[in-house]
Design a binder for these strands. Structure first.
Lengths: 190, 190
DNA sequence: AGATGACCGAAATCGGTTTTTGGTCATTTT
DNA sequence: AAAATGACCAAAAACCGATTTCGGTCATCT
């Protein structure tokens, strides 16, 4: 694996485990087995390295989701399988969870900014899919941004907030059936 | 108005305006036009005064909601009007918003604890209503706790989080129609 | 008997000092 | 020559003792 890959990998590990602030460049260098200066050959500064990690993760999620989408299938079916896919890779979203936690606890501006970027990115992606479903006449004529916002916040609530008030995390299939029964089913044209 | 009422009123005002931590007992005394010692004749300490304020607010909300419920009407209709009622009194929920903000920023343990209490209280109330709807055969057989959690978190997301990423608050009727189109409609038996 | 505010100690705040850490660059390695 | 490196620097964060604030008490006063 080339050095840049190694560094990105190490940074992802460290940010996920310790958060943004508690991750030091020295530490990333050590994990990646490179000198500190080498990192700056590829990334201008810590914030950009962070951004690269986040962009990479978003891309991966989009890619993963797109793979599951079958343009022949119904919106309903695709929404269901996409959500399932997302839930399957929940651990990978632990970076998000970590960042949300850090944002709440430390209010690091860089983290806040990145979270808003992630949110905006995801919501605009989901909006697009919803708009698509409306155009195809598969789902009712709703406000795509509002529905996307609702979906995003609901998802985060179960992935992140649920643990705060309940001992054990909620099961994937419980979330899945809940969303299917409520939001998704509500959206479907009858 | 008797002194105790005066104090509770003053405390509510101050907590809502400044939050828990930034509210001093001296200040409450001043607003209520009583000596500081007088407050301790009615409330053991600041935390209990806070709890009393919160309990009062929850009671008021429950009462307000119960008033709108028509046992003859459908679950759907009642859910809709209850939500409408809640939205109507949005300003009164500003204390909640303030507390959520404070919890995020300062992590005051007393505030955290109180928010969890509020959340638990509301979710258990909504759960009860949902269980009722299921028993009456009006809505599909879902998990009442999960649906209540979803409803609560969604409501909070629009009342509190929306402003963080959007300039102007979302309109009441936009929230209302969104909930009707998605979650509520999904729950309805067809 | 109930209300009050001066008073107390614990907890928060502040400001100056020390330590940590993001970022650079002269030197070394390939 | 090009890339890698870690000693080094300045700026930001952590630390810590001095000072202030504030929750809670109680002797005194209505």
């Amino acid at each position: 694996m080339d050095r840049q890959q190694e560094i990105l990998q190490a940074a992802t590990t460290s940010f996920t485990q310790f958060g943004y602030k508690a991750t030091t460049i020295d530490q990333v260098a050590k994990i990646a087995n490179v000198g500190k200066g080498t990192i700056y050959n590829f990334y201008a500064n810590k914030e950009q390295l962070f951004e690269e990690v986040v962009i990479h993760l978003i891309q991966e999620m989009k890619h993963e989701t797109n793979k599951t989408i079958d343009t022949k299938a119904s919106f309903m079916y695709n929404a269901h399988t996409s959500l399932m896919k997302m839930l399957e890779f929940r651990e990978r979203h632990l970076l998000f969870a970590k960042l949300i936690e850090e944002e709440k606890a430390l209010r690091t501006p860089a983290v806040r900014q990145m979270l808003l970027k992630i949110e905006q990115e995801i919501i605009s992606y989901v909006s697009m899919r919803i708009r698509n479903g409306i155009e195809k006449g598969e789902i009712i004529n709703c406000n795509p941004e509002h529905v996307a916002f609702l979906l995003f916040k609901s998802y985060i609530a179960f992935i992140v907030d649920w643990q705060l008030t309940h001992e054990e995390p909620i099961k994937e299939d419980a979330i899945l059936s809940l969303f299917s029964q409520t939001i998704f089913n509500g959206l479907a044209k009858k």
